[in-house]
């Protein structure tokens, strides 16, 4: 369905490097096949969005990238997701999911801070990596919180419980937590679906900033959001990738009829 060879982006002069590529990725929840041979190329330091109606498999696909499916029994991957520059297949059974998660972090649909202080939430990933020096942690926590545009709001109350923050702040805290360990890719699973429009706008703005330093893969059911934040967009339907292209093209001149119907709101 998708001509991978033709995927030369026209937005920039020099084409971006390839960060990850999925090759014929299928996924099974027990006997149910949720993904059918999905092929997507993820460009380095760009935002790639996945859209599609609910149940189309976009979140399932996203969660393959840091092996979240390994947490539950009965799940099975097929195909390859190659992480570049090494070209290691991160869904291969010989690859340690923990190593994958150390390089690819995730922000969830609903903000899920730990019942700990703001500081400890951000420091968690570093502590997991046995970074315990106070000065290193202090620096990293501040950097991550600044990165997540939360520093000015919380710098005076780092020891307060994370639950004291508003919903939008909690989600930015979760973003800071994911950024603190310098991941190569950050996965966003509908990060604004539980937020009000103002908090949503801040997160979208933040994603635009983040792509300067990190590769982003975002799942959203909000087409406008995909159009606003992403460089590339893939449209998924019934576990298949229907179309993948530069975002502008998907929303203005999709080559597939199904994509056109979806982005123009005729179904979904």
């Amino acid at each position: 369905m998708v001509e991978l060879a033709e995927m030369t982006p026209t937005v920039t002069a020099a084409p971006p490097a390839l960060k990850a590529e999925s090759k014929n990725v299928s996924f099974f929840y027990g006997a149910f096949q949720a993904l059918k041979k999905v092929n997507v190329n993820i460009a380095d330091k760009k935002v790639t969005a996945l859209i599609g109606p609910s149940g189309c498999g976009k979140t399932t696909f996203l969660r393959c990238f840091n092996r979240m499916h390994d947490l539950y029994p009965g799940n099975r991957y097929q195909g390859e997701i190659l992480l570049h520059p090494e070209g290691v297949n991160i869904i291969g059974p010989e690859v340690d999911p923990i190593e994958v998660r150390m390089r690819i972090n995730m922000v969830f649909q609903k903000a899920n801070p730990f019942p700990k202080s703001i500081y400890e939430n951000v420091a968690y990933g570093l502590r997991i990596r046995e970074t315990n020096s106070r000065s290193v942690l202090d620096g990293k926590v501040e950097q991550a919180l600044r990165h997540a545009a939360l520093w000015d709001e919380v710098k005076d109350r780092l020891q307060n419980l994370a639950f004291a923050l508003s919903g939008g702040q909690q989600q930015r805290l979760c973003i800071a937590r994911a950024l603190a360990t310098d991941p190569e890719i950050v996965l966003f699973d509908e990060p604004t679906s539980a937020l009000d429009p103002i908090a949503t706008a801040r997160i979208e703005e933040l994603i635009g900033e983040l792509k300067k330093s990190v590769t982003i893969l975002i799942v959203t059911h909000n087409m406008q959001q995909a159009a606003r934040v992403s460089d590339y967009t893939g449209f998924m339907y019934l576990g298949e990738l229907v179309e993948f292209d530069v975002t502008g093209k998907i929303f203005t001149n999709p080559s597939n009829k199904l994509t056109e119907d979806y982005v123009t709101g005729r179904f979904g």
Partner: peptide
């Protein structure tokens, strides 16, 4: 579960998740 997932998503093992997140929670 989403608290657990948050811990696993940054690369924690079951042991780290249990001791650092689940037991305190």
């Amino acid at each position: 579960m989403h608290i657990r997932e948050a811990s696993y998503a940054v690369g924690a093992t079951r042991f780290q998740t249990s001791v650092r997140v689940i037991v305190p929670s």
